[in-house]
Design a protein around this nucleic acid. Structure first.
Length: 570
RNA sequence: GGCGGUAUAGCUCAGUUGGUUAGAGCAGCGGAAUCAUAAUCCGCGUGUCCGGGGUUCAAGUCCCUGUACCGCCA
């Protein structure tokens, strides 16, 4: 039995994520986790919220709540929505957990011992009114280049010139609006990634089977300009992991916290400790420590392309630099962006469909199927309501749902609500079994390779094969002359329903439950042997005719949603 | 500005290391069937593979260049 450690990029805490975020990491990770479990492999699937940093502080301030309370509330909201989408995390943790604090401080100490941390003194803008240092993008002022009045401290949105906050004319804090800013000296810790460059390059070069998107982004950072740069891993903030060297104070770093991107990936590990702490597991080290049983673990990470540099370079620097036998990632599956109706999904502008809204209008399976079958793997892809309606109606309602309906209802009317007996298989049946065997093996290969779209395509073809078979076998005609043969045909078709439920479960888990319940079986065994799998429901086995498995999306609904989600969210 | 990605049928997308007449699903058209959520099945695709150059016996596939869209710039 293979062992799979699977993590999804951890979503930021300050709000509800949109469908683009979902399809870029959590959803495909869930697909893979569910598939590996269905194959009988041991899986630990982890995700958390990413809670530290300025945006969380600001969101909390806007909500007029202490940041810790705000994060706790938002964690609960995100956890509930994740459940709504049937994301099957073994644990949904929090980067603000005590476990992550301790582990982050531990890694920092190890990196310092290894000579991979250096102190850098730099000047940064301090806002007297806000009583804090301001990150570049929280300072605005007039662009010295084009005169644009709302240029950000890092770049002018008007002329696109890159700026330093000190360049701005009449700089002001975007938090308070105050212009009472001054430059102050502050000390920060930098992770010496540049020292790790060759090691990282060799590691990336060895990953010849990774998506091009992943390796090309990594190589860009490794080789662009002067090569991989050292990176500040501390900030002058209150909300975060206090800078400590292991369990000891770090002289000169009092009152500072680690940068969110330093502690966030470490949460992958800490999450497994939280998992144990929550009583869901007993041993996290056998997943993470190659000296303690994790040497046979396959570790796969899922993320959007914006997260790739941190997972290919920063986090591996932390892991490798620690000098300890931590499990390093084996495969990084990265995704492009999903666009929304001709533009981008945007959290900050509230554009697109957000996870909570999606669940308000349709069950999770609809979204799961469309998003996964259109996952932006090779390039950015596009969500339109017309496409969504057409795909979902055709694939789920017409091809799969109607198959279930026609088979169960026909059986009920001719043989009653139990699997009929009699008849022997012939040419049609053998051809179907041959086709299914070929297709199921292809489906397995695509799923194992995390080829999401191709998997969906193959699964759909498997559903279509059932309709083709029915059309060829035509039990409604056979029944008139030869009820025995019709019984055999319909027995096979009823077994196809169970087979489809099992095969489809990674994509549409609720439908799987509904179909298994209708077939009155709990046999979810994978069809390693297709002929045997098609005899799982024996003659005499009782079943019920399920309610409509997937209702269709009407034109009125589509138009309604199109209008409702055309603007931006408050 | 720098860097990266993308550009293939009306739509959403496949096209492996360059190799015969460029494919799938949807939509559209025609037919069959009537068990079913008017659901299914079969048949039908000449599309300057973004433009222009080049390498090659051979390029959607490699190189150069132009254009458009998108993203990133910690």
């Amino acid at each position: 039995m293979a062992r799979h450690l699977i993590t999804s990029a951890i979503p930021y805490i300050n709000g509800i994520k949109h469908l683009g975020n979902l399809v870029g990491s959590q959803l495909p990770a869930d697909l893979f986790a569910r598939y590996q479990r269905a194959r009988g492999n041991e899986v630990l699937f982890l995700c958390s919220t990413d809670e530290h940093g300025t945006p969380a502080e600001l969101a909390a301030a806007k909500a007029d709540k202490p940041v810790a309370d705000y994060c706790a509330e938002m964690w609960a909201v995100q956890a509930k929505i994740a459940e709504g989408f049937r994301l099957s995390f073994d644990h949904f943790g929090r980067s603000s957990s005590p476990e992550n604090h301790k582990l982050t401080q531990h890694f920092a100490g190890r990196l310092d011992d290894a000579g991979l941390i250096r102190e850098v003194s730099e000047k940064q803008m301090f806002s007297n009114a806000d009583g804090r240092f301001l990150p570049d993008r929280y300072i605005e002022g007039t662009c010295p280049n084009c005169g644009f009045e709302d240029a950000r401290g890092d770049q002018c949105d008007n002329c696109t010139k890159q700026l330093d906050p000190t360049d701005l004319i009449n700089p002001r804090s975007t938090i308070s609006g105050s212009t009472d800013l001054e430059e102050r000296e502050t000390k920060h810790l930098f992770l010496c990634q540049s020292q790790m460059r060759e090691k990282l390059q060799a590691w990336i070069d060895s990953k010849t089977d990774w998506p091009i998107l992943t390796t090309s982004i990594a190589n860009k950072w490794l080789n662009d300009g002067d090569g991989l740069q050292d990176r500040g891993i501390t900030r002058d903030l209150d909300w975060g992991v206090p800078v400590m060297k292991g369990d000891d104070v770090w002289p000169g770093m009092e009152g500072k916290v680690f940068y969110v991107w330093f502690d966030a990936p470490i949460e992958y590990i800490a999450c497994s400790q939280e998992w144990v702490g929550a009583g869901k597991g007993t041993d996290w080290e056998r997943w993470w420590r190659t000296d303690k049983g994790a040497d046979d673990v396959t570790y796969t990470q899922f993320m959007g392309k914006d997260n790739v540099p941190f997972h290919t370079l920063s986090f591996p620097s932390t892991i490798l630099g620690s000098g300890e036998p931590w499990k390093l990632v084996d495969y990084i599956k990265s995704f492009n962006y999903l666009n929304y109706d001709g533009g981008q999904f945007s959290t900050s502008r509230g554009r697109g469909v957000f996870m909570d809204q999606a669940l308000e209008i349709l069950p999770a399976d609809y979204w799961r199927w469309w998003l996964l079958s259109h996952a932006p793997e090779s390039s950015d892809s596009e969500f339109t309501w017309e496409n969504f309606q057409q795909s979902v109606n055709k694939d789920l309602a017409d091809v799969l749902g109607n198959f279930v309906s026609r088979v169960t209802k026909f059986c009920r009317s001719k043989f009653g609500e139990e699997v009929p007996s009699g008849g022997v298989c012939g040419e049609n049946e053998n051809a179907l079994i041959a086709e299914l065997t070929t297709r199921i093996r292809a489906y397995e290969d695509h799923m194992a390779a995390m080829e999401v779209r191709k998997s969906a395509q193959e699964l759909r073809a498997i559903w279509v094969a059932g309709n083709e078979y029915l059309q060829n076998a035509a039990p409604w005609s056979t029944f008139k002359e030869d009820p025995e043969t019709a019984a055999m045909q319909i027995r096979l078709a009823l077994n196809l329903i169970r087979l489809y439920a099992v095969l489809s479960s990674p994509f549409i888990p609720d439908a799987k439950d509904a179909l298994m319940a209708a077939m009155q079986t709990t046999d979810e065994s994978w069809p390693d042997d297709v002929p045997a799998a098609l005899e799982a429901l024996a003659p005499g086995h009782a079943f019920t005719v399920p309610d409509v498995t997937f209702r269709k999306i009407t034109d009125e609904e589509r138009e309604d949603w199109q209008a409702r989600f055309a603007g931006t969210r408050d």
